[in-house]
């Protein structure tokens, strides 16, 4: 009897995560989607954002988000993969035990601290050495690249460790070097995990807000170079939610709905890829 009640209660509790997800989806869509229907897709996906005057175009922010995310991947993928390969295949257990928590610590540093480091070091550096305002696609890409490193490292690392040892032994037995084994056998075998890590890293980059606001400059136009200021979907949300009312607020939620949809899609792809094995 006691066991039956406990089981029902736990089942109820166990649905808390999926229930939260549904609540989030419902409320964000409910606040945002009606506005998209009201103003039409051509207005919503235009480049003109003046929400207090009836222009709700988010295209330049979408492009902004895509640019900084692509930039983050250019920085994050090589370094992330290098760390994962080095940790999983080229280092002894004591080195692994020291380095892995250090790299994971990167994930624990608050995003505002990354943004701050961007403001005081990276932005002035870019302004002096490359020109432009410093607050730029480039600055955001580098900081986001560092921020998504731990995600890429830990998932790729787990994927590499999951490759059976017989692969390595067989490869060494036929005289291959460690590096050859990594490139020809281990990376292909761990491919799905690595791709999942990259996709999750991409999700983190698209969704990151505070660090981006602090260093991207937030100008409302499509950037023409890596040194131009850029405004992302997330920055618009965070910059304007505090004072927006009426249709303006609804437009922010519409923007949030679009962002949420992309993130959920990326999550589902990543979950499918890792779940397949």
């Amino acid at each position: 009897m006691k066991d039956k009640i406990a089981e029902k209660l736990l089942l109820f509790i166990a649905f808390s995560a999926i229930l939260s997800l549904l609540l989030i989806t419902f409320f964000i869509f409910q606040q945002g989607i009606p506005l998209i229907f009201k103003v039409g897709l051509s207005n919503f996906f235009s480049t003109h954002w003046a929400p207090t005057r009836g222009n709700f175009g988010i295209l330049s922010m979408i492009i902004g988000s895509l640019m900084v995310t692509a930039g983050a991947l250019v920085v994050g993928i090589p370094f992330g993969l290098a760390c994962a390969i080095f940790l999983a295949e080229f280092s002894s257990p004591p080195i692994q035990k020291t380095l892995k928590p250090i790299i994971e610590l990167l994930a624990g540093i608050p995003s505002v601290v990354y943004g701050f480091i961007g403001i005081v070091i990276l932005v002035p550096f870019i302004r002096e050495h490359f020109g432009g305002p410093g607050f730029s696609v480039l600055a955001a890409s580098i900081i986001l690249g560092i921020m998504i490193l731990p995600t890429i490292v830990s998932i790729s690392y787990d994927a590499l460790l999951a490759v059976p040892n017989t692969y390595r032994e067989g490869s060494y037995a036929v005289g291959a070097t460690k590096w050859q084994t990594v490139v020809m056998l281990l990376l292909p075998a761990a491919r799905s995990g690595i791709v999942a890590g990259i996709i999750l890293g991409m999700g983190r980059a698209i969704g990151e807000t505070m660090a981006v606001i602090m260093i991207a400059g937030n100008a409302l136009k499509i950037p023409h170079s890596m040194l131009d200021s850029v405004r992302t979907l997330t920055s618009t949300l965070a910059l304007e939610l505090g004072y927006a009312t009426g249709d303006h607020r609804a437009a922010l939620f519409a923007c949030g709905s679009f962002l949420f949809l992309i993130i959920i899609l990326l999550n589902i792809i990543a979950i499918k890829i890792t779940g397949r094995k």
Binding site: A17, I18, L23, F27, N267, I271
Partner: peptide, 21 residues
């Protein structure tokens, strides 16, 4: 799936949700 998906939701979305809900 719920737990994995929720883990990937960015904090600004939680902010939007918390604000409206």
């Amino acid at each position: 799936f719920g737990a994995d998906c929720l883990a990937g939701v960015p904090s600004i979305i939680f902010g939007l949700f918390g604000f409206i809900f």
